[in-house]
């Protein structure tokens, strides 16, 4: 019986290149709309990756997503700092539950981004958009930022990943780093740390 691998990985690319090789996010066709009607109008002109029906289902999906994943703030003032004046409102989910609905604020949904599913899957993904402080637009995770909510282009497929609803973020999501350099100091005088 053969004792060696059929193939191996031969090259060491170096840290910078390794990150790029094979790791670049796949891009997909994407288009942003301020509302459902403008999506439907575009779909009726035809020859796109989405249909009128897609516009309707993804708009409903984006609305629900917005409700579940948009950032929440405890004052209108802080919300407007992040999203611009006039771009925030009360949290309807909290208001429905009755308890203190008036004191939780979130950005208003200002359109949605739709994208073609990857890997030959026929289907359309969506994410809601809200305003950013500098006048642009962003998905709830804040990872995907657009300067406008009307236009077509390419977006990384992970732009459509759902933002986390719970505390403790999923791997590869954006974190706010409070401190660095807490690893490596004990052994930092050696030339090699393995053996």
């Amino acid at each position: 019986m053969r004792k060696r691998s059929r193939h191996v990985s031969l090259a060491i690319l170096g840290a910078a290149a390794f990150g790029l090789a094979g790791c670049k996010s796949q891009e997909t066709d994407a288009q942003a709309f301020p509302d459902e009607a403008s999506c439907v109008a575009a779909a009726e002109e035809g020859s796109l990756f989405f249909t009128v029906e897609d516009c309707r289902t993804t708009f409903a999906e984006a609305q629900q997503n917005h409700l579940e994943t948009a950032p929440r703030y405890d004052s209108l003032e802080v919300c407007e700092e992040q999203h611009g004046e006039g771009n925030c409102g009360g949290d309807p989910a909290a208001a429905q539950q009755g308890g203190g609905g008036g004191s939780i604020f979130m950005p208003l949904m200002m359109g949605y981004l739709i994208g073609s599913m990857m890997g030959g899957n026929r289907g359309v993904m969506s994410q809601p958009l809200s305003r950013t402080a500098n006048g642009g637009f962003a998905t709830p995770s804040g990872d995907t930022r657009l300067s406008t909510n009307t236009g077509a282009g390419k977006a990384p497929a992970n732009a459509f990943n759902r933002a986390p609803t719970t505390m403790g973020q999923p791997p590869m999501s954006r974190a706010t780093v409070a401190q660095r350099g807490g690893f490596g100091s004990t052994a930092a005088s050696r030339g090699s740390y393995g053996g």
Binding site: A15, C23, G168, Q169, T176, Q179, R180, F183, G184, A188
Partner: peptide, 17 residues
């Protein structure tokens, strides 16, 4: 998904991750 980072560059987030 394989990603590289220098160990000394690892940070601690405000959520303790």
């Amino acid at each position: 998904g394989a990603h590289y980072t220098d160990l000394q560059a690892v940070g601690l987030s405000d959520q303790g991750q």
